[in-house]
């Protein structure tokens, strides 16, 4: 049975006089891959920034359903780190790794919000801290193996190839144990082979029960991955449905290709 994880209702975002998001509704169920598509400037990344707390939305609400709890929590007004702690983890359109940290350390940063050693533990290296460090290391390494970067564990992140950096971003986000994984154009700038690898990786993650919401321009990838698709244009949601429905939707075709002019 599919349970809803994320419910976004009437999300609105104004920058001065410009309405970047206009009452956008979106929902993601558990185990689903949902894609958010739209032409450049449609407001997709703004949408991500709003639900992850980087921007404070002007209106609307973002509700996250926690597992084993009937109550939903609102993510509106929370700081980005709190949003991540609640269970939303994201990657960035323009890669934002920690370049002068090793690949493994990048993933270990993702474990930060699930661990709690602090000054005292760090200085005296108590048994609890040592255990925690060990588990951070173990989990991070396992995640690196999953995305196929284990042999690069001790290299600097900025020495990785472009595709590998994208995969590392996904690994880092996975390390926070998200309820919902947000991918912002994961295939941007990838060559066909890398895109194919990414397709496999996302499918693999999804099969493990991970709910995913992704923004993507590569239609082939979107159609192959998504269970459902939301289409945005000029800050508004213009369509939603299965890949087949979206492909046939006139509004979507219009947004992407322009209107047909009757001669």
């Amino acid at each position: 049975m599919k349970q809803p994880i994320l419910n976004v209702t009437n999300l609105t975002m104004d920058f001065g006089g410009i309405r970047a998001l206009d009452s956008v509704d979106l929902d993601v169920n558990s185990g689903e891959i949902v894609a958010l598509i739209g032409p450049n400037g449609a407001g997709k990344t703004t949408f991500f920034n709003c639900i992850t707390g980087i921007y404070q939305p002007t209106g609307g609400d973002i509700l996250l359903s926690l597992p084993n709890k009937s109550k939903k929590v609102s993510l509106k007004g929370l700081k980005p780190n709190k949003v991540t702690e609640r269970g939303l983890a994201r990657t960035f359109q323009n890669i934002r790794l920690f370049p002068k940290m090793t690949v493994l350390e990048n993933v270990m940063i993702g474990r930060h919000c699930r661990t709690k050693a602090f000054i005292f533990g760090a200085i005296f290296r108590t048994a609890a801290t040592r255990r925690e460090e060990e588990s951070i290391l173990e989990t991070s390494y396992a995640i690196l193996e999953k995305v196929g970067l284990a042999e690069h564990a001790n290299e600097f992140a900025d020495n990785l190839s472009y595709g590998a950096q994208r995969r590392l971003e996904i690994a880092r986000a996975l390390a926070t144990e998200p309820l919902l994984l947000l991918l912002d154009e994961p295939a941007a700038g990838m060559n066909p082979q890398e895109t194919l690898d990414l397709d496999h990786l996302i499918k693999q993650i999804s099969q493990e029960g991970q709910a995913i919401l992704l923004i993507e321009h590569d239609m082939q990838l979107v159609m192959s991955l998504s269970d459902r698709i939301f289409v945005m244009d000029y800050g508004k949601k213009i369509a939603q449905g299965t890949p087949a429905e979206i492909r046939a939707n006139p509004a979507v075709i219009k947004a992407y290709l322009g209107e047909e002019v009757d001669a």
Binding site: F92, R96, P99
Partner: peptide, 23 residues
């Protein structure tokens, strides 16, 4: 330590650091 890694992450990229759940 975990704290030291968080400092270095903060130095490297503040926005990514916050998005990864670091206060």
């Amino acid at each position: 330590s975990r704290l030291g890694r968080a400092w270095i992450a903060l130095r490297e990229d503040e926005i990514a650091c916050q998005a990864m759940g670091i206060d």
